[in-house]
């Protein structure tokens, strides 16, 4: 059975603490939560610049993550290197369509979607766009939730490098894995440092 709470009109001066979920009054600057006494947000300009800085770092790291091999296979002394896209194509050709789609979604679509979402949210704070605030709140929520999904590829490489370690065939991680793991880390930081008040009021 569902019971709805009495809906209230969105009051712009109330804000949710991301740690203890208590309702707080937004004073505009730096806020400390009344319940858990933790800092809710920096000054808006600081969190804006932090988000941009982390995002740029992540985008830069995305380039080597795709260009360098993520997986190196040594078979009878012959070294074969495969990048993320190469691996997906290989899986597709081998007929493992579901796995190819999972990797394609987790390693290619999710990071790009996150970049686009964060850039869109940042732009929408500077210019008044037509999209509703509720949609942008949802977009930010999705960005936070899908954040860790991109790590699948790095974990798979780590698992394969443990399991396939024989004298004739060996799998080791490539430099792309480091760049990719760092890229995921920085996009998560970027999403974390984004101030939701920017959605409400703009910069």
């Amino acid at each position: 059975m569902r019971i709805y709470t009495e809906n209230q009109i969105v009051k712009n001066n109330l804000i949710r603490c991301p740690i203890c979920e208590a309702t707080n009054i937004d004073t505009g600057g730096e806020i400390v939560c009344r319940r858990c006494r933790e800092k809710i947000h920096d000054y808006k300009s600081i969190s804006f610049h932090k988000t941009v800085a982390f995002l740029i770092t992540a985008i830069i790291l995305y380039i080597p993550a795709n260009l360098y091999p993520i997986l190196v296979t040594k078979k009878f002394g012959i070294v074969h290197e495969s990048t993320i896209l190469g691996g997906i194509m290989h899986l597709w050709e081998a007929g493992s369509y579901p796995i190819a789609l999972i990797i394609l979604f987790a390693s290619v679509f999710v990071p790009i979607l996150k970049f686009i979402f964060i850039i869109y949210l940042l732009i929408s704070t500077k210019f008044s766009l037509k999209s509703s605030k509720i949609d942008r709140h949802k977009l930010f929520y999705i960005t936070e939730v899908i954040g860790s999904w991109s790590m699948v590829d790095v974990f798979v490489v780590a698992i394969l490098s443990v399991l396939i370690h024989f004298s004739i065939v060996e799998i080791i991680p490539g430099n792309g894995a480091t760049a990719f793991a760092l890229m995921v880390f920085f996009t998560m930081l970027s999403a974390k440092s984004f101030d939701i008040r920017l959605i409400k009021e703009g910069y």
Binding site: Q8, K11, L14, R16, E21, T23, H137, K138, Y141
Partner: peptide, 17 residues
């Protein structure tokens, strides 16, 4: 303030019951 709760997804303000 304790009688309010904000949705984590769409940030709509609700009064608790």
């Amino acid at each position: 303030l304790d009688s309010f709760i904000i949705c984590k997804k769409c940030h709509t303000l609700h009064r608790k019951i």
